[in-house]
């Protein structure tokens, strides 16, 4: 009787032999793949470096270009802030690291110097405006994108800077390590719409909140967080004002 593969010791050895061969072949294949990937990565990196250094000036100068470059990096899964060296690719290839850090320092400067007025919460467009003023550049040279990226690079410092979305496409930057709950986010959004003024009536009328909920949210912001100011002489009784949502002309 002859069975495929046979029986007995010889067959067992043969089977082991083939398993070993398969294993060798498999690791050789994956090694080849890894090598291939490595070479692709190197190639890609070189291409990116070439692109970045060719367009360095444009990237540094033109906010739109910078934004597009940043987006391209994001699409292909490269974080320009990450990298082998301090400051990441931005620093390595574009000398943008310094620019980012510089911007970071100015953002901190503005946040800290306006903190007493706004309780550590500043509207994004206001921040961009004041930072631009500080740099002595026209509007549009520093963009929201740049500020967000800079704030990201501040993260390792543990300063607790964070960009918040308050709805309606409005963003705020928080420079104090306080958690904002959802109700406060709603209050901030309304304050944005109303030039800074919020009241119980606005919250109950527009958001169908119960008076208790509205009062609790406002009192918390007033007494616990110092994020809003009280106005007892309001035409409708009592109002609350969020300084970071008010427009200040210096």
């Amino acid at each position: 009787m002859h069975r495929l593969g046979g029986v007995g010791l010889a067959a067992f050895e043969r089977q082991q032999q083939s398993q070993k061969s398969f294993a060798e072949l498999s690791s050789a294949l994956s090694q080849a793949q890894v090598d291939h990937l490595h070479s692709q990565l190197t190639q890609f990196r070189n291409a990116l470096v070439r692109f970045a250094s060719t367009h360095r000036d444009s990237i540094r100068r033109d906010p739109r270009f910078r934004h597009e470059f940043q987006r391209m990096c994001a699409t292909i899964g490269v974080d320009p802030l990450a990298g082998p060296r301090k400051g990441g690719w931005w620093a390595e290839m574009l000398n943008l690291g310094d620019w980012n850090y510089e911007l970071g320092v100015q953002i901190v400067d503005v946040c800290v110097s306006t903190r007493e007025r706004n309780g550590g919460l500043i509207e994004m467009s206001e921040l961009v405006r004041v930072v631009s003023k500080l740099r002595g550049v026209a509007g549009g040279v520093v963009t929201e994108d740049d500020v967000i990226r800079s704030i990201k690079s501040l993260k390792p410092l543990g300063a607790g800077y964070e960009v918040l979305d308050v709805g309606n496409g409005k963003k705020m930057v928080r420079s104090v390590p306080k958690e904002l709950d959802e109700d406060q986010a709603v209050v901030l959004a309304i304050a944005q719409e109303e030039g800074g003024r919020v009241s119980e009536e606005l919250l109950t009328g527009r958001r169908r909140w119960t008076p208790e909920r509205a009062r609790a949210a406002l009192e918390n912001m007033l007494l616990r967080d110092g994020l809003c100011w009280l106005d007892e002489q309001d035409e409708h009784g009592v109002a609350y004002w969020v300084p970071s949502a008010m427009r200040w002309d210096e």
């Binding site: 007033l222 110092g226 100011w229 009280l230 002489q233 004002w241």
Partner: peptide, 10 residues
């Protein structure tokens, strides 16, 4: 600023 004229509880 209207609230500037109110004594603040905070």
């Amino acid at each position: 600023a209207p609230p500037f004229f109110t004594q603040q509880p905070n």
